[in-house]
């Protein structure tokens, strides 16, 4: 464990807490893409299949449980909670995430480290996580109303991934055999997807103006 990875995990945890707080306290999910949240639930469901079979550490198991619980409860809130679901913008959140899931599944079947069910599912979860933010970014472009919490949520998600890249550089330099191209490339693609959001988010923060994404 290194500082980059720990702060990455904490930033990731913060992003889901911010989102849950937003939904739970103001009972609204305006501006949040259900498609992205469903993709994240799928990411954790397919990545943490070995949560009860391969014990890594107490920290690892607890964090996995938290991510599974938060991602599925966010999806539940947005789909079934009688008040929250009313603020879900289903006309605008129309990204057909099946067009993201299928190519990721095909790619995972072709490009993986070992052709076993668990390894293919794990690789699939990496590819899905790389593109999971797309429906949310599309929704932000469309609705233009990026409220603070949604902006912070996306920012924290991007920051967690950027910290993970530093973690991989650190581990590559300190653990000689730590080479994982699949993880690195999908993580890099994911972080690059946030690049333009970061640019506008930091600019709006510097100029102290409301965050506006270009048309």
């Amino acid at each position: 464990m290194n500082i980059f990875r720990l702060s990455g995990d904490m930033t990731h945890l913060m992003s889901v807490i911010v989102l849950l707080l937003k939904i739970h306290t103001i009972k609204s999910c305006a501006g949040i893409s259900l498609k992205t949240q469903e993709l994240y639930a799928l990411v954790f469901a397919t990545r943490y299949l070995d949560i009860f079979t391969d014990f890594v550490s107490v920290y690892n198991t607890i964090m996995k449980l938290i991510f599974l619980a938060t991602s599925f409860s966010i999806v539940w809130y947005m789909r079934h909670h009688k008040i929250v679901r009313r603020s879900y913008d289903k006309e605008q959140d129309t990204f057909r995430h099946l067009f993201l899931i299928l190519p990721c599944l095909i790619l995972a079947l072709v490009v993986n480290e070992k052709f076993t069910f668990k390894e293919v599912m794990w690789t699939f979860s990496l590819y899905v996580e790389a593109v999971a933010i797309l429906p949310q970014l599309v929704l932000l472009q469309r609705t233009k109303n990026i409220d603070n919490l949604t902006g912070q949520y996306v920012f924290l998600l991007g920051a967690y991934r950027a910290l993970y890249i530093l973690n991989w550089i650190y581990r590559y330099l300190t653990e000689k055999h730590f080479v994982h191209w699949i993880t690195w490339i999908s993580g890099l693609v994911q972080t690059l997807l946030y690049a333009d959001f970061f640019y506008y988010y930091i600019n709006s923060w510097k100029n102290n103006v409301r965050l506006q994404l270009p048309a």
Partner: peptide, 10 residues
């Protein structure tokens, strides 16, 4: 190679 070390990450 020890147990797949990328799997110790979240």
């Amino acid at each position: 190679r020890p147990k797949d070390d990328a799997k110790d990450e979240l």
